[in-house]
Computed example of a mutant assay.
Amino acid sequence: MTETALNRGKTDNLKDTKQYSLSDRIFNFVVYSFSFIFLLITVYPIYFVVIASFSDPYAVSGGKVWFLPYDFTLDGYKELLKHNEIWRGYWNTILYTITGAFVGLAVNIPAAYALSRKDLVGRKFIMLLFIFTMYFNGGLIPTFLTIKEFGLYDNFWVMVLPFSVSVYNIIVARTFFTSSISEDLWDAAQIDGCGNLRYFFRIVLPLSKAILSVIGLWIAVGQWNSYFNALIYIKNAKLYPLQLILRDILIINNVQSALGTGEAAQIALRLANLMRYSIIIVSTVPIMIFYPFVQKYFNHGVMVGAVKG
């Protein structure tokens, strides 16, 4: 081993054994303490819902559930899975989510790219019109009448098409294109005889995987959790999304517990309280499983363009 390698090893050992000053230790202690507190604030409510879904509801309301399930039970999940319409709701929600994500990307991404181009005539005025809709809209009744006139009422596409445009997503994607896609690429593509459409599909989109993942995730989560649009614009129970079916199940159980008497009412009330936590788990687990696969793109896509230099 050479003398240079030995000196380098000694330097690394000195760095590893370097003692922090008192102020550094205090600072690290404060940072780690706050990080741990914020972690508890974020994670514990989710953990509590999970253990509460496996615990006796009276133990939950009595404050006996803290870190582990109390009086372990699967009654909430068993009662919930007795309703066969849940699987139809899952299927509908998956279709709404996948279709809505593709349609949302197909609408918002090209619009954002067009608004990021400096050679777009009237770009600032068009952007002003987009931003105007973030603060003012026609309201529920005009929107309902418009959807009905277009023949989308009580239709599969009412959950996808009318609300596919998101100005916020367009602004985020436009910022990405402006800060991350160099104009030199467009100049080079023009020299090679590349047109606008070919440049967008062959060069811009492959370089935009991060923002495509972020916008797609936002749209998918919004579609998965959507229930208000279905409540207003869908009357056919076969088209209900999962969230609306779970809501109806919970209402029915609450009504049964309120109308019952004696021991039957107590059992119905216990199941209704238990199913509240089971419904939260059933409706959120798919998205929680899907999120880690796009997390790396999510972090990069949100932060890209925020700092330049």
Rank of each mutant, 00 (worst) to 15 (best):
V121E: 14
Y199W: 04
S182P: 00
L145D: 14
V165Q: 10
K148R: 10
K118F: 08
I211R: 05
N169W: 00
V204S: 03
L212A: 08
V158S: 11
K118P: 12
F156N: 00
L161W: 09
R174V: 02
Q190E: 09
L207E: 05
F177S: 01
G195L: 04
S164E: 01
S208M: 00
V172Y: 14
F136L: 05
D119R: 10
S164W: 10
V121L: 11
G139K: 11
W157P: 04
W157Y: 15
N196V: 05
L152K: 05
D184V: 09
F130R: 14
F177I: 03
F136Q: 13
S180K: 08
T175Q: 01
L207W: 06
L185W: 09
L161I: 01
V204R: 13
F136K: 14
I170V: 15
Y153N: 07
S164C: 07
A114N: 08
Y113R: 00
M127F: 11
V165C: 05
G122S: 06
G139M: 06
V160R: 04
M159I: 15
E149Y: 08
L152A: 02
D187K: 02
L197I: 15
Y168Q: 05
M134R: 06
L212K: 03
F136W: 14
I131P: 06
V158L: 03
I147K: 04
F150R: 03
F132E: 05
S179P: 12
D184M: 12
A210Y: 11
A114D: 09
S208I: 10
R117T: 10
F156D: 06
W157F: 07
M159Q: 13
L152N: 00
P142W: 04
G139D: 13
D119G: 13
V204Q: 11
T175K: 01
R117H: 07
N155S: 14
I181G: 02
